[in-house]
């Protein structure tokens, strides 16, 4: 469904560092209903990728939609995608608009 978002963009982040290195805020039942990136830490995989930006709103993680997911659940989905050994990357579908 996220593919229908007109302004969305798929970003593949390779696991090039021991951490992903993003901070997110938001989730269902908060003022920010989808997780938004608020920090990108230097030296993390996201920073090394160079394409994820502060302000990006995350619509999907490896094809799993985050709409309707509360903050902790969304954070868990992202953390598990990073831990998953079978994949050396995470695909984020993001949009710059809320």
């Amino acid at each position: 469904p996220g593919l229908l978002e007109p302004t969305s963009c798929l970003i593949r982040v390779s696991k090039t560092a021991p951490t992903l290195g993003i901070a997110i805020e938001g989730g269902a039942n908060t003022r920010q209903p989808l997780p938004r990136i608020v920090t990108i830490q230097r030296g993390g995989s996201a920073h090394n990728c160079g394409k994820l930006k502060v302000g990006h709103v995350i619509l999907e993680v490896n094809g799993t939609g985050l709409r309707g997911k509360e903050h902790r659940e969304a954070a868990r989905i992202i953390a598990e995608a990073f831990k998953l050994k079978e994949k050396d990357y995470i695909d984020f579908l993001v949009t710059e608009f809320n």
Binding site: E25, R31, H71
Partner: peptide, 15 residues
């Protein structure tokens, strides 16, 4: 719109 304004802020998680 009104309802949206009353929603709480989110916590922040570092990943």
């Amino acid at each position: 719109r009104e309802k949206r304004l009353t929603l709480p802020p989110s916590e922040i998680t570092l990943l």
